[in-house]
Design a protein around this nucleic acid. Structure first.
Lengths: 194, 194
DNA sequence: CGGTTTCTTCATCACTGATGAAGTTCAGGC
DNA sequence: GCCTGAACTTCATCAGTGATGAAGAAACCG
């Protein structure tokens, strides 16, 4: 018999296992959502004992929170969108959102709307920090906060309709059509009317 | 000792138990969402054996679907909103949505965005039947379907932002402000620009 | 009355998230 | 070079979950 190779001990550096778990978690959460993903499945995919997931992340929530940590790749793209100033910002926001989400399947943003109360806090904080804050600075009117909120409604609605509930014809519309339709709408939230 | 009153048998008419279960389910689903509500909790709240829930509704999904059966009180209100014609329809839709949802806490519509893939199908079907269909009839332009989709995005975004993720200042804005802000936006989806 | 349907309970299943003990390896101090 | 404590890994185990199926008790029908 071959030696029993499933015995406890220190095999890899912790960071490596942690990374494997995170990768597996991201893939499974994206594919099956929060409720449809089991810690055991994540562990299996990562080639790791389920207990280890809890050792590193405490509980399923912690794993989820770590898996969707967005601060990594989002900021540069967001920065670029807002750098161009208020002119044509609506189109740029919509294009950035849709292209980014199209490219990565069901992304964190879409996944979050599927989680639970605690995940809401994360999403709320994220939106506040990355979107509302920057928008409020660009809009000069006294109702800047409300206008920023309206933009968030557009973005949230678009995301949920296209990626979560998949309402037609929004779900299968080409990017350009969404941009040309919703861009002006967002722009309108930013400046005109109201 | 009192006689053992927890023995099997036919005690109430089935309809009564079914109703108790449905009431309990609605309350708990609304309060804790889909994942946070257990069949056992529903059964306990209804004073009923967990097995009975499955006897009547097959599985948790079936219970959920039955609990959010919307066809009951929604149609009359919806009918009234659309009866007034295209003029000022935006404001009427927004007002109806927000007032209805404010009155009933987290309603089915808000709960649905928290469920899972199968619940998506219900929501999609509901929106298609109750909203998109009627809208498409009122809008005369060839892009009626897309415009209806845009309205759905508004409604969905508003619902998620105010009731699910609770983004400020949308979450605590008074009804009238939402109506005066989003009404024209919806109206714009219906007719102008694009 | 007997037989059937309808409602109800219970025992039980596989599986889930989670905990804690014990074992194994490694890095640093002596 | 060994020792020690920390980091990492496995395992046994727990309560609770959704779900199934058998069997019992009332109600209904003939």
């Amino acid at each position: 018999m071959a030696e029993q190779n499933a015995r406890p001990g220190r095999w890899r550096t912790g960071a490596e296992s942690k990374q494997r778990i995170l990768d597996a978690a991201r893939a499974l959460f994206r594919q099956h959502g929060y409720g449809g993903t089991t810690v055991r499945a994540v562990a299996g995919e990562a080639g790791v004992d389920p207990g280890m997931v809890f050792y590193f992340f405490g509980n399923k929530q912690g794993l989820f929170a770590a898996a969707i940590e967005m601060s990594a790749q989002a900021p540069p793209a967001i920065e670029a969108v807002f750098a161009g100033g208020l002119d044509g910002l609506g189109e740029r926001i919509v294009r950035a959102l849709v292209e980014n989400l199209d490219a990565s399947g069901r992304t964190p943003l879409a996944m979050l709307t599927r989680a639970d109360d605690q995940a809401d806090a994360l999403l709320r904080e994220y939106i506040d920090r990355e979107i509302t804050g920057r928008l409020a600075k660009l809009i000069a009117t006294p109702d800047a906060a409300f206008r920023a909120g309206m933009v968030n409604v557009q973005l949230l609605g678009l995301t949920v309709a296209r990626y979560v509930v998949r309402i037609e014809p929004i779900a299968s519309a080409p990017v350009d059509e969404l941009v040309s339709r919703f861009g002006p709408l967002v722009q309108c939230c930013l400046a005109e009317g109201g």
